[in-house]
């Protein structure tokens, strides 16, 4: 009885990390699709966000694989900081995008503006929005995981 319960709980933990991994993989392949297939050049801020999401796809994978049937609990320690820093860049980018921070104050090269909106899915979803969504969902899931399993 108790063992069953423990198993169920660790299943849930694994599932949380698995969902985080799915999000990171979707972000990885999605961003590569935008840049390599559609030819949208990533601006400087996009690169910073990529830097913090790409390793997550690997870290979550390792976290899921190493401990047999349940996830490696320390995965939270290594992934949460990356996700939080990434979210910072995503929010900053969103503010530049929506005009709260003037273009001249942010570090983009002249020929590739970070404020220029070059993609809107379904009319309103922009790339920084997707980025914020991905990072914040990962952070929330990781916080739940940390509270319940660490």
């Amino acid at each position: 009885m108790v063992e069953d319960k423990i198993k169920k709980v660790s299943q849930l933990g694994w599932l949380l990390i698995f969902i985080c991994w799915l999000i990171a993989m979707a972000a990885l392949f999605g961003s590569l699709f935008f840049s390599e297939v559609m030819g949208l050049k990533p601006c400087v801020l996009c690169w910073w966000q990529r830097i913090f999401i790409y390793p997550l796809a690997v870290l979550f994978l390792v976290g899921m694989l190493t401990q047999g049937d349940k996830a490696d609990r320390s995965v939270v320690r290594y992934t949460l900081p990356l996700a939080i820093i990434g979210l910072g860049f995503a929010i900053y980018h969103y503010l530049v995008y929506s005009g709260f921070i003037p273009e001249s104050l942010q570090p983009c090269s002249k020929d590739l503006s970070c404020a220029e909106i070059n993609l809107q899915l379904m009319g309103f979803v922009t790339i920084p929005m997707l980025s914020i969504f991905a990072y914040s969902t990962i952070i929330i899931l990781l916080l739940i995981y940390r509270k319940r399993f660490c």
Partner: peptide, 21 residues
Amino acid sequence: KKNIIIIATAILFVVLFIVAA
């Protein structure tokens, strides 16, 4: 079983990417 799910998902991502591209 989980490792199989993981590998299948990874392959799915790659296939989806190639098809979409």
